[in-house]
Protein backbone atom coordinates (compact mmCIF):
# COMPACT_ATOMS: atom_id res chain seq x y z
CA UNK A 1 0.00 0.00 0.00
CA UNK A 2 1.39 3.44 -0.88
CA UNK A 3 2.44 5.64 2.00
CA UNK A 4 -0.06 8.38 1.15
CA UNK A 5 -2.98 5.94 1.44
CA UNK A 6 -1.51 4.45 4.61
CA UNK A 7 -0.97 7.82 6.27
CA UNK A 8 -4.21 9.53 5.21
CA UNK A 9 -5.87 10.48 8.52
CA UNK A 10 -9.39 10.64 7.07
CA UNK A 11 -8.96 7.59 4.83
CA UNK A 12 -9.78 9.77 1.87
CA UNK A 13 -7.10 8.09 -0.19
CA UNK A 14 -7.90 4.44 -0.70
CA UNK A 15 -5.83 1.77 -2.36
CA UNK A 16 -6.76 -1.68 -3.53
CA UNK A 17 -8.23 -3.74 -6.33
CA UNK A 18 -9.54 -1.15 -8.79
CA UNK A 19 -12.79 -2.96 -9.63
CA UNK A 20 -13.59 -3.33 -5.99
CA UNK A 21 -12.72 0.34 -5.36
CA UNK A 22 -14.98 1.37 -8.23
CA UNK A 23 -17.90 -0.60 -6.74
CA UNK A 24 -17.30 0.94 -3.34
CA UNK A 25 -17.12 4.43 -4.87
CA UNK A 26 -20.39 3.93 -6.75
CA UNK A 27 -22.13 2.89 -3.55
CA UNK A 28 -20.67 5.92 -1.80
CA UNK A 29 -21.98 8.21 -4.53
CA UNK A 30 -25.44 6.65 -4.11
CA UNK A 31 -25.30 7.18 -0.35
CA UNK A 32 -24.21 10.79 -0.73
CA UNK A 33 -26.87 11.51 -3.32
CA UNK A 34 -29.52 9.96 -1.05
CA UNK A 35 -28.38 12.46 1.58
CA UNK A 36 -28.78 15.27 -0.91
CA UNK A 37 -25.09 15.82 -1.64
CA UNK A 38 -24.35 16.07 -5.36
CA UNK A 39 -21.41 13.82 -6.15
CA UNK A 40 -19.93 11.86 -9.01
CA UNK A 41 -16.81 9.91 -9.98
CA UNK A 42 -14.10 11.69 -11.98
CA UNK A 43 -11.65 9.57 -13.94
CA UNK A 44 -13.73 6.41 -13.75
CA UNK A 45 -15.40 6.58 -17.16
CA UNK A 46 -14.61 7.70 -20.71
CA UNK A 47 -16.14 11.15 -20.22
CA UNK A 48 -13.70 12.13 -17.48
CA UNK A 49 -10.65 9.99 -18.19
CA UNK A 50 -8.10 9.31 -20.91
CA UNK A 51 -8.26 5.53 -20.94
CA UNK A 52 -7.74 3.21 -18.00
CA UNK A 53 -5.66 5.22 -15.55
CA UNK A 54 -6.85 3.10 -12.60
CA UNK A 55 -7.06 6.16 -10.39
CA UNK A 56 -10.19 8.21 -9.89
CA UNK A 57 -11.79 10.75 -7.59
CA UNK A 58 -15.13 11.12 -5.90
CA UNK A 59 -15.94 14.80 -6.33
CA UNK A 60 -18.73 16.96 -5.02
CA UNK A 61 -18.08 20.02 -7.14
CA UNK A 62 -17.29 20.58 -10.78
CA UNK A 63 -13.81 19.41 -11.85
CA UNK A 64 -12.64 23.01 -12.38
CA UNK A 65 -13.08 23.68 -8.67
CA UNK A 66 -10.41 21.04 -8.02
CA UNK A 67 -8.13 22.36 -10.77
CA UNK A 68 -8.98 19.43 -13.01
CA UNK A 69 -9.98 19.81 -16.68
CA UNK A 70 -13.66 19.45 -17.52
CA UNK A 71 -12.91 16.62 -19.90
CA UNK A 72 -9.26 15.54 -20.13
CA UNK A 73 -7.80 14.80 -23.57
CA UNK A 74 -4.53 13.11 -24.52
CA UNK A 75 -2.62 15.86 -26.37
CA UNK A 76 -0.93 13.35 -28.67
CA UNK A 77 -4.30 12.53 -30.26
CA UNK A 78 -4.15 15.90 -32.03
CA UNK A 79 -1.09 14.94 -34.08
CA UNK A 80 -2.85 13.25 -36.99
CA UNK A 81 -4.96 16.33 -37.73
CA UNK A 82 -1.89 18.58 -37.44
CA UNK A 83 0.30 16.49 -39.75
CA UNK A 84 -2.56 16.26 -42.23
CA UNK A 85 -3.13 20.02 -42.21
CA UNK A 86 0.61 20.66 -42.66
CA UNK A 87 0.87 18.10 -45.48
CA UNK A 88 -2.13 19.52 -47.35
CA UNK A 89 -0.82 23.09 -47.04
CA UNK A 90 2.72 22.14 -48.05
CA UNK A 91 1.42 20.02 -50.93
CA UNK A 92 -0.81 22.80 -52.25
CA UNK A 93 1.98 25.40 -52.01
CA UNK A 94 4.51 23.04 -53.60
CA UNK A 95 2.16 22.36 -56.52
CA UNK A 96 1.61 26.09 -56.97
CA UNK A 97 5.38 26.53 -56.69
CA UNK A 98 5.96 23.93 -59.41
CA UNK A 99 3.54 25.81 -61.66
CA UNK A 100 5.35 29.10 -60.95
CA UNK A 101 8.91 27.79 -61.22
CA UNK A 102 8.64 25.34 -64.09
CA UNK A 103 6.49 27.32 -66.45
CA UNK A 104 8.54 27.78 -69.58
CA UNK A 105 7.80 31.20 -71.01
Amino acid sequence: MPACAKACPTESIQFGDVDELRERAKKRVETLQARGVESYLYGADDATSVGKLNAFFLLTEKPEAYNLPERPVLPSTRQAAGYAAAAITAGALALAGLAIFRRAE
Partner: peptide, 30 residues
Protein backbone atom coordinates in the same frame (compact mmCIF):
# COMPACT_ATOMS: atom_id res chain seq x y z
CA UNK B 1 7.90 20.09 -45.89
CA UNK B 2 7.95 17.90 -42.79
CA UNK B 3 10.25 20.24 -40.86
CA UNK B 4 8.36 23.38 -41.77
CA UNK B 5 5.10 21.81 -40.59
CA UNK B 6 6.06 19.63 -37.63
CA UNK B 7 6.84 22.61 -35.37
CA UNK B 8 3.14 23.50 -35.47
CA UNK B 9 2.18 19.91 -34.65
CA UNK B 10 4.73 19.97 -31.82
CA UNK B 11 2.96 22.96 -30.27
CA UNK B 12 -0.57 21.64 -30.69
CA UNK B 13 0.27 18.23 -29.21
CA UNK B 14 0.41 19.88 -25.78
CA UNK B 15 -2.26 20.88 -23.27
CA UNK B 16 -1.56 24.63 -23.79
CA UNK B 17 -5.05 25.91 -24.69
CA UNK B 18 -4.07 28.30 -27.49
CA UNK B 19 -1.87 25.73 -29.22
CA UNK B 20 -4.26 22.84 -28.67
CA UNK B 21 -7.20 24.66 -30.23
CA UNK B 22 -5.07 25.44 -33.31
CA UNK B 23 -4.25 21.83 -34.12
CA UNK B 24 -5.06 22.39 -37.83
CA UNK B 25 -4.46 26.13 -38.19
CA UNK B 26 -1.06 26.42 -36.50
CA UNK B 27 0.75 23.73 -38.55
CA UNK B 28 -0.84 25.16 -41.72
CA UNK B 29 0.24 28.75 -41.15
CA UNK B 30 3.67 27.64 -39.94
Amino acid sequence: AFIVGYTGVLLSATAIPLWAIGKRHIPAFC
